[in-house]
Simulated scan of single mutants.
Amino acid sequence: MEKKLEEGLLSVVGTPIGNLSDASPRVLDTLRGSDLLLCEDTRVTSKLLAHFGIRVTLHRADENVIAQRVEGVLARLREGQHVSFVSDAGMPGVSDPGRVLVDAALDAGARVEVIPGPSAAICALVASGLPMEHFFFEGFLPRRHGQQLERLRALAPIPGALVLYESPHRVAATLVCVAEAFPARRVALVRELTKLHEEVLRGLSSDLATQVAERGELKGECAIVIEGPGEEELRQLSSAAGPSLEEEMGRALAAGEPKSVLAKRLAKQFGRPRSEVYDLVLAQSGNTEGH
């Protein structure tokens, strides 16, 4: 049984994000050679297959049902079959379904391969021309303005560019929120990636928000790249952030707060595992007592 599982293969396949010519020979060979192809939307993937004259068994596996497909996929891998997975466009698992299949297949000892393809996040970063030595992929923000603003402010200290996805009918409002959160940063809006009317709009956040609002609703899926914070902004964020975990721990221990109560409070406050914080509390209290 284990040998058969090793003979099976799960291929995670990156597909074009707009221009079908971006499908590599290896992508097409993999799709043709699959015993089963899982996809987000059979209608979308059927068009891709028809364009290249590929015939393969196709099953839907979007985010609502992909977890239910896992056991069936593992059973096929145990039979030595080749199962492939594609999202509607781009790299599966990057703001798209797919991770759960890879996770389960690796845990089961099956072979997994990634067939490279376009990624809107990476393409947008390159197209933006903004510094990208470090970057953070956020994907889609919450829809409500207040929740968007809260999330953006939480991302503010990240020392790198931020990459967001947004739909064309919400992008103008999102850029207003970005300008509110990051008034001093440059922002790029990249839309219609790899297509005939690919476009990059770039400028100071407030200027870009105004420019897009004046144009009305745009067409095509959009990616937003936000410049990382400068040294002055990082200093301001650091001073406004309040005490660090270690500083708060030292103050509370000096005030005599019980260790277990302190660990529980700090774990919640700083989003760290309670056991980890408790070990830090014990270590710091030991050092304090030692002195």
Rank of each mutant, 00 (worst) to 15 (best):
G53F: 15
V94D: 03
Y165P: 08
R55S: 10
A154N: 12
R78N: 09
L77P: 06
V44L: 10
T42H: 05
L164A: 04
G139F: 07
R153G: 13
L101H: 09
D88T: 00
A61L: 00
Q147E: 15
D41K: 02
E150M: 12
F140H: 13
H134K: 12
A67R: 14
D107W: 03
T57L: 15
L106E: 03
E40A: 01
L77M: 03
G72S: 06
R151K: 15
I122E: 06
A121N: 10
P159D: 06
L141W: 15
I54V: 15
A50E: 14
L141D: 09
L74G: 07
G93K: 03
N64W: 14
A121V: 15
L106C: 07
S46T: 14
P116Q: 02
Q148L: 11
K47C: 08
R76T: 05
L48F: 12
R153T: 09
R60W: 01
P142R: 14
E113L: 03
R76I: 01
L149T: 13
S87H: 02
M91A: 06
D88W: 03
L164C: 13
G98I: 00
Q148G: 15
L155W: 12
G93S: 06
E113K: 01
A124W: 03
M91Q: 08
F140Y: 15
E150C: 10
E133W: 07
H145F: 13
V70H: 15
G80Q: 01
V44I: 14
V70R: 11
D107I: 03
L130A: 08
G98L: 02
H82K: 14
L164I: 12
